[in-house]
Design a protein around this nucleic acid. Sequence first.
DNA 1: CTGGATCCCGTAAGATACTG
DNA 2: CAGTATCTTACGGGATCCAG
Lengths: 90, 90
Amino acid sequence: MRIIGNKWTGSILWHLKDQPMRFNEIARQLAGASKKVLAERLKAMEENKLITRDVISSKPVAVQYKIAARGLNALTILEELKNWTLENDL
Amino acid sequence: MRIIGNKWTGSILWHLKDQPMRFNEIARQLAGASKKVLAERLKAMEENKLITRDVISSKPVAVQYKIAARGLNALTILEELKNWTLENDL
DNA sequence: CTGGATCCCGTAAGATACTG
DNA sequence: CAGTATCTTACGGGATCCAG
């Protein structure tokens, strides 16, 4: 729960699942999450090796976030959790 | 996460998995959790239908907590989560 | 014995503004 | 563009005392 139980973590993984994305790109998808929270989560997720962070250009700064192997199977677990809630309550 | 992401919820399910237990019996197993927290969790878990609560005697009051169907498959998910953490980190 | 009532605290998370 | 800084709020959880 320390690793995947935080708010937005699942959504971030979901958006990164098919293609890598840049910071503001993710921010746009996650309307409702402030940049502060997003930066916080991304940092933690990188530390937990759920995603990787690559600076792909400076001037202007561009950073790319990509889902990692651990992030992919974490997502699998989260999907089961989602299915469970759908089957049971709301 | 609202339903199974709380602290102790998993442990409680684990202890109830094989046999029903009484309040203080659970309390003894969960050294570290105060009675307030335990009561809080049990109540929430009953509302979420993860467990059932039965008063089996008055004078002295005795209450039995039993795992419910939803609790059992929730436990399945939690085990997968645990396996995932074991495979990945610590 | 099974809880309920309070009080306290740490941390997640939101809002907003600012920066290299 | 990709964050940082600062402030504030909400809530889970712990400790302790009380009650039917």
